[in-house]
Computed example of a mutant assay.
Amino acid sequence: MVWFETILVVLTLLTGAVWLVDKLFLARRRAARAGLLEEEEPVIVDYSKAFFPVLAIVLVLRSFVAEPYKIPSASMMPNLLIGDFILVNKFAYGLRLPITNTKFLPLGEPRRGDVVVFKPPMDPENSWVKRIVGLPGDTIGFTGNTLSVNGKAVRYKPLGTYQGRGLPPGSDRVTLLQEDLPGKTHTLYEDLDRYTGEGTWTVPAAHYFVMGDNRDNSEDGRLWPDTHFLPERNLRGKAFLIWLNCEGWFCKNGFDPSRIGRVIE
């Protein structure tokens, strides 16, 4: 969330500034007066010296190494479930400044099939997660529940009826499929009682086309108003690991230890 990131940056700068001013000026004055009177270190200095290293480490790790994110919806089933806590690689696509998300060091580019966390154009205050299916210059089509990339239909392999968690109540027509994207194979979830999002789109430069693995229940590029594409500047990073699954406050809706440590494909 933008507000959390902003608060973290402000607190880090504030405590760092207090610590620096004390080290360069105030501490010397206290030392010069030593022996004349007993002077305690100001409370704000004491707290700043204690919290600045912790805040700085958290800010660096969260901004440039890995950021935690909780899955709030079923749009990436069966690979990501509601309640999954994931880690996002923040340097896979280049290092970016906190708050502004401005890239200052290019390190790599997204590949087709990557699961990415990003800020959607119509909801920049929040982060979403989807899979990249279209790269700049690609023509993406979705007709009859079949994806095509540059005019070639993607191959699907049925894997049987979905039996996992998160199944909609009363649904008995949910199937698990293997989708062979060019360069990437992954599973997806198809609900034959739903059908959504047909069209053809050509991805412009510096943009991507993203879709959810829960193809019939995902608010993705097929349905976005005004633009169907994700700007490169909105990327937050690449999702790579599930480190916890805990649904509801204090896990009141369940804790699934089998999800811990799963690599996101």
Rank of each mutant, 00 (worst) to 15 (best):
L59V: 02
P53F: 06
R194Y: 05
G83V: 01
F118M: 02
G137F: 08
P136Q: 05
E39I: 15
N253W: 06
G199E: 09
W243Q: 05
F250S: 12
R236I: 04
R173K: 14
G16C: 11
I264F: 01
E125I: 11
L192F: 08
Y195P: 03
V54E: 00
G35P: 11
F229V: 06
P204F: 06
I260D: 09
T202G: 06
R28D: 11
F209I: 10
K103A: 14
V116P: 10
F240V: 09
S258N: 08
R259G: 13
V18E: 00
G134I: 02
L55V: 07
E125K: 12
K184T: 11
R259T: 10
S258H: 12
L8P: 04
N89Q: 05
E219H: 09
H207R: 02
V116W: 04
G164Q: 06
L87V: 08
A239H: 01
E109R: 15
E265N: 15
P106G: 09
P182C: 10
V203E: 05
E247W: 05
L135M: 15
L80E: 03
T139P: 06
R155C: 05
P168A: 13
S148Q: 07
V43Y: 07
G108A: 04
D256Q: 11
F104V: 10
I71R: 00
V210H: 03
Q178S: 14
V116D: 05
D114M: 12
S75N: 03
K103N: 10
T200S: 15
I86K: 00
G83A: 06
N253V: 02
P42R: 03
D213P: 12
R96E: 09
A31S: 13
A31V: 03
P106D: 14
L181P: 04
G137D: 07
V117F: 01
L105H: 13
G16I: 06
E5G: 07
V60H: 03
E109T: 14
S171Y: 08
G35S: 10
V174M: 15
L81D: 09
T15F: 09
D138K: 08
R233A: 15
L241W: 06
L147C: 08
T102I: 14
L192Q: 11
V116K: 00
F209P: 05
L177Q: 15
T200W: 01
